[in-house]
Amino acid sequence: MDTQGGPTGLRERALGPDLARGFMLLFIALANSHYFVVGAAYFGGFPTGGSPLDRILGTLISTLVDGRAFPMFGVLFGYGVAQIVRRQRAGPDQFGGADERGIRRLLWRRSLVLVVLGFAHAMLLYIGDILAAYGVLLFLGVWALRWKDRWLFAVAAFVLILTALPSDDTLAASAEGPDPSMLPAGFLGQLAERITVQPFIAGLAWIGFVTPFLIGLWAGRRRILERPAEHLTLLRTTALLGLTIAVAGALPMSLVVGGVLTRPSDHALTILGPLHDAAGVFGGLGYAALLVLVAHRVGERPITRAIAAVGQRSLTCYLFQSVVWAVVFTPYLLDLSNTLTTTTTAILAVATWCATVLLADRMRRANYRGPFEVLIRRVTYRSPARFTSG
């Protein structure tokens, strides 16, 4: 078993957070895949003019997934950081645990791994990488570890308000399809295109994850997702209100994706786009709370253990998805961006996630960690991390 102060052993992990991480990978697959589809015109990242089923699925994904999956990632990321800090402070040390400087250095090593891995991921597989952005967020976020709760909430609310302000970014993005960095004509061109785009994404995308990260940090301090029986009212309220706000905030945009409403004016889009994304933060909180409640209610069963195994190996499974996107959509490989539709890419996303569930469960049964989990632990803790969970 892992010594206290090191990485959490797989047998020690709570079901709720891992189940949430496992389902999160399904949402991320659905959120990423449709951006590869090529069409004559676009709205909200979806090609317009598809079949009725394309429009229905586009509406559902825009309402329930887009801008909701990555905030859930942020909540769980912040929660995981709080878990690391708690274990370090309680670790075997003559003063009762690691000092704050040692904890910061440990987390900075973890952030460096994420930035380097994210850069390689973006250059070789998927330009929409978020690992590097989370690495930047963690590098800066270590200073929030000493903040009191009221400061966590105050900064989280301030950043959320900023991201909800009217912006022209959504206006431009709503009409754009895949750019050359996403669907490069050749490998050398891919590197040339992405080397200029990736630093921009890594350097700015973390701002949108600040609010869920800080809320996750607060929740992790209180072990809310690990001890749901002690926080049922909070979790139920968060699930209900969070998902209600997320759906209500998404409908003005998602109904346009589905062809139910006509495209709003440019001025309206500068308001509705940020509203869609800001409401998604509440959706991320709601999904995390809902899935922890499901884990609490259902408990350990073969299906929950298999999905939780994905959550325990979320980095490996996330990168596995990108391998699929690269093989299927890259023009110099299978080049199916002009062939697949919103519907068929959604099917591909679900099938890819199901494959990761089978793979992760097989690794769980064999008592193996994911290879990238081993890598990040080895660098973070500066020790020879084991492939097994013992």
Rank of each mutant, 00 (worst) to 15 (best):
Ala239Met: 13
Ile201Gly: 01
Arg104His: 05
Pro264Asn: 09
Leu60Gly: 11
Ala98Pro: 11
Gly370Trp: 15
Leu57Lys: 07
Ile224Asn: 12
Asp93Tyr: 06
Glu100Thr: 13
Glu12Tyr: 13
Thr356Trp: 02
Asp277Thr: 05
Val81Lys: 10
Arg297Val: 11
Pro7Asp: 14
Leu319Trp: 01
Arg110His: 15
Ile347Glu: 00
Asp266Gln: 09
Glu193Tyr: 08
Gly177Asp: 04
Leu333Val: 12
Gly273Val: 04
Leu162Met: 05
Arg227Asn: 15
Tyr318Asn: 10
Val298Phe: 02
Val116Asp: 02
Gly22Cys: 09
Ser383Pro: 09
Gly370Phe: 12
Arg110Ala: 15
Asp93Gly: 09
Tyr79Gln: 11
Leu30Cys: 08
Thr63Ser: 11
Cys354Met: 11
Ile347Asn: 02
Ile61Thr: 12
Asp179Leu: 07
Leu26Asp: 06
Ile271Lys: 02
His34Ser: 01
Val155Met: 02
Ala349Asp: 08
Ile84Gln: 04
Gly177Tyr: 04
Ile84Glu: 01
Arg263Pro: 13
Asp54Ile: 05
Leu204Trp: 07
Ala366Ile: 02
Ser62Gln: 10
Phe329Met: 03
Ala246Arg: 05
Ala308Gly: 09
Tyr318Ile: 14
Ile347His: 04
Gly74Ile: 06
Leu272Pro: 00
Trp325Glu: 14
Asp99Tyr: 01
Leu334Cys: 12
Ala295Thr: 07
Asp54Asn: 15
Leu336Ala: 03
Phe119Tyr: 12
Gly189Val: 04
Val327His: 00
Gly286Met: 10
Gly78Glu: 13
Gly242Met: 04
Leu243Tyr: 09
Phe73Tyr: 11
Leu162His: 01
Gly50Val: 06
Ser174Leu: 02
